[in-house]
């Protein structure tokens, strides 16, 4: 019985023996944006839009809300053990795509299949600047889905890693009193305290001073070792080259290239003119 159920692995030597962790299948992502449409600010424009709604409804969507097509028909398959870089000029849809993979943004068309629950490295949104660093560590940990015990266990490590207390007892002060560098360090430390199946990092490497950057790069390598798959969004081609073995290049929401780091970066640098 068990013999007949042998894995389909033998037929594949290189590509198909690998376990996929994320499959994106023709993904479209559309944002609805209010408050930016032409003339939206003026009352007469709003009025005429309401009156003329029937006429324009088909073109503009309900109430003249503008739609932004942020990601168009992107398909890729990520495998276990891969570190994938996402590059592209500003506003090319990198962060949007990551959010959709994390299940945080709904897709308009297509589907994204994932192994487990991919998580975005970052807890900024859950933290409150009026609270002390101490309470933010707890709040951030809980927000990422850690239990109270896990937070208690890792509390010391988080504070130590952030180095917040190196210059006095800052962890008991409200976060609004921190310098932007200190706040960024604490945020990274909290976010990096959890192990992930599929980990996505959105330009998190460029925080803090040089010393802290070194430390965070090391931590990301650690996370990479435990995580199944890592996605990294960055504008720093060097950090992409250091950490990733495959690169997806997005431009205007479309997947322009998908391949080994060196190859894609070469084309990308030609495109942006940075390679000279």
């Amino acid at each position: 019985m068990a013999d007949t159920l042998t894995e389909p692995a033998p037929r594949a030597t290189t590509t198909e023996s690998r376990t996929p962790t994320v499959i994106a299948d023709g993904v479209d992502i559309v944002y609805r944006v209010t408050g930016t449409g032409a003339g939206r600010g003026s009352a007469t424009a709003a009025l005429s839009r309401i009156l003329g709604r029937r006429k324009h409804a088909e073109h503009e969507g309900v109430g003249g809300v503008r739609e932004v097509h942020a990601v168009k028909g992107v398909s890729f398959t990520a495998y276990k053990g891969e570190a994938i870089g996402l590059i592209g000029t500003n506003g090319s849809g990198k962060s949007t795509l990551l959010r959709a993979v994390a299940g945080l943004l709904p897709t308009a068309n297509g589907r994204i299949y994932t192994h487990g629950q991919p998580s975005l490295l970052g807890v900024n949104a859950a933290l409150m600047s009026d609270l002390t660093g101490e309470r933010n560590v707890t709040l951030g940990g809980l927000a990422m889905g850690m239990s109270r015990e896990q937070v208690r266990e890792r509390y010391e490590d988080i504070v130590e890693f952030s180095g917040i207390n190196e210059k006095g007892d800052f962890i008991t002060l409200p976060m609004r009193t921190y310098s932007s560098g200190m706040a960024a360090r604490l945020r990274f430390s909290i976010a990096a305290a959890k192990d992930h199946d599929v980990l996505m990092i959105d330009e998190a490497l460029a925080t803090g001073d040089r010393k802290f950057q070194k430390r965070s790069e090391a931590r990301i390598r650690e996370l990479r070792a435990t995580a199944g798959t890592v996605f990294l969004v960055s504008h720093n081609n060097k950090s992409i080259r250091d950490t990733c073995d495959r690169v997806l290049w997005l431009e205007r929401g479309e997947l322009r290239m998908d391949g080994p780091t060196a190859e894609v970066l070469k084309e990308y640098e030609k495109f942006t003119g940075a390679g000279k």
């Binding site: 299948d25 943004l105 994932t114």
Partner: peptide, 18 residues
């Protein structure tokens, strides 16, 4: 190309995100 995204996903126990 993998046969079909949905099939491949089902084969490896992947679930639809979101």
């Amino acid at each position: 190309v993998p046969p079909d995204a949905a099939e491949l996903a089902a084969l490896h126990g992947l679930t639809v995100s979101n």
